[in-house]
């Protein structure tokens, strides 16, 4: 080892190197030192520039992902009628079952580590007996101007061509910037490896990937259901109408009050487009300009 190092060091022996060059050409007497420094510097700087410019190359790829086809793609949206909703929690459990959302357990629940893709948000005001309270189911709002998408450093979350704010589990590095940036706190992090007992593993839905520890997960508008129904229809040559999608996501399907409606916002005749025009319609935190694709209906507006 020592000898090896010795010989390696010899390469940089200044005297010898200078002698070497002196013997061949006396003009470059002081060249080597300068050149080496310059070379090293140039190398370092080019490294720096590579660092700066490599990501830029990916912008091209990024733009390609949003291919602009001629066919108008649907833009999925959801309308939740709070006058109908009784906050029974059917949507919450249905979502859990459909999307393999892990159970936190008593200890982790105490530490506020629970994951709900669909959660019920509660607000309360007033004193007995003039109390007012409201519960509202809140999935990911799938904002058109999503604060979470802008901040993801690796493109693990993006807005799909059909308007779904998607999370690609396999790319997520778990920096939790998106969870922090989301003004609705509708993104969840796998603090620990999700645990299923051997028996509960039977229940896992094969259409939805399970998430490993350390990644962020969120509502997907049950896009696997959309894909499934669409493939089925395409192969069987059927046309899909708004009816097929109206109660498609697991939460909408489960809702006993049918308070959740789903559909294509680009289709002016769809139920969601119709409901969205209702005077009762409002969005959560409209003033932030996130432009959510989840619309709420309520006769008296929810105080924010």
């Amino acid at each position: 080892m020592k000898k090896l190092l010795a010989s390696f060091i010899r390469l940089f022996e200044p005297k010898e190197r200078e002698e070497r060059f002196q013997s061949s050409d006396s003009i470059v007497t002081e060249g080597p030192a300068r050149r080496t420094i310059l070379q090293y510097l140039a190398g370092a700087m080019s490294g720096v520039f590579a660092f700066l410019y490599i990501p830029k190359l990916f912008v091209k790829d990024l733009l390609n992902q949003h291919s602009t086809g001629k066919v108008q793609l649907p833009k999925w949206g959801m309308v939740i009628d709070l006058d109908k909703c009784t906050t029974c929690g059917g949507c919450v459990v249905s979502c859990r079952a459909e999307n393999n959302v892990p159970i936190a357990g008593a200890d982790q629940a105490d530490k506020a580590r629970m994951i709900f893709w669909m959660d019920i948000l509660v607000e309360q005001e007033g004193e007995y007996p003039d109390i007012k309270m409201r519960g509202m189911p809140t999935p990911c709002n799938h904002c058109e101007n999503a604060p979470c998408v802008k901040v993801c450093p690796v493109g693990a979350t993006y807005i799909s061509e059909e308007g779904i704010v998607a999370q690609i589990w396999a790319r997520c590095i778990g920096c939790r910037y998106c969870t922090t940036a989301c003004p609705y706190t509708r993104r969840y992090f796998n603090w620990e490896a999700p645990q299923w007992s051997e028996e509960y593993k039977n229940q896992l839905n094969p259409d939805v990937a399970t998430r490993p520890k350390g990644v962020v997960e969120k509502c997907t508008f049950c896009h696997h259901r959309i894909r499934k129904i669409r493939e089925q229809a395409k192969i069987e040559g059927q046309a899909l109408t708004d009816e097929n999608f109206r109660y498609l996501p697991a939460c909408a399907q489960a809702c006993p009050a049918k308070a959740i409606t789903f559909g294509d916002l680009n289709n002016p005749n769809s139920e969601v487009s119709r409901l969205k025009k209702s005077p009762r319609a409002f969005h959560l935190q409209e003033e932030l300009g996130t432009n959510p694709k989840v619309t709420y209906l309520r006769s008296a507006k929810w105080k924010e």
Binding site: G89, G90, V92, V93, S94, A97, Q253, P256, A257, K258
Partner: peptide, 14 residues
């Protein structure tokens, strides 16, 4: 129930 199901019904799998 016309397609609806509450949280208890959904939990039947467990």
């Amino acid at each position: 129930n016309k397609g609806g199901l509450g949280p208890k019904g959904q939990s039947g799998l467990q």
